[in-house]
Nucleic acid binder design. Sequence first.
DNA 1: GCCAACGTTGGC
DNA 2: GCCAACGTTGGC
Length: 140
Amino acid sequence: MRYWLFKSEPNKWSWDQQVARGEAGEEWDGIRNYQARNNMREMALGDRGFFYHSNIGKEIVGIVEVCALSHPDSTIEDARWDCVDVKAVRPFAVPVTLAQIKAAPALAEISLIRQSRLSVAPITEEEWGLVCAMGETDPS
DNA sequence: GCCAACGTTGGC
DNA sequence: GCCAACGTTGGC
């Protein structure tokens, strides 16, 4: 299993909206960046991801799971753009803020900081475990 | 509101 | 294929 980071502006698509979709999940649509798209094409069913609120909150608020493999983005008529579906797994007991992540030496190389504009990015297993611990949240 | 980072576009 | 111009993202 691999780990990923999904970023969303909460005034466009929030964790609460993701939770409301339940087991059905939701397309992670609207991605118009090749690197982000390529990351989604590499995802497998059951892969886990952090759900990060950008701009407002600037914190990791929950864990999602990939529940549909990469497929054409239904919001655009353009074969270039694919996306996966994700469903909420559990919220973070304590959200982990960007400031906390920046302050953690072991997270200096995390994609959230190193490629701050990339909205879908890989996370290492070590980073996954650390951030979950910081959020007092079950990493499984 | 500003600005750094960086991806995209289009002229050459 | 290069590079300047421009647009977008996202933190501050």
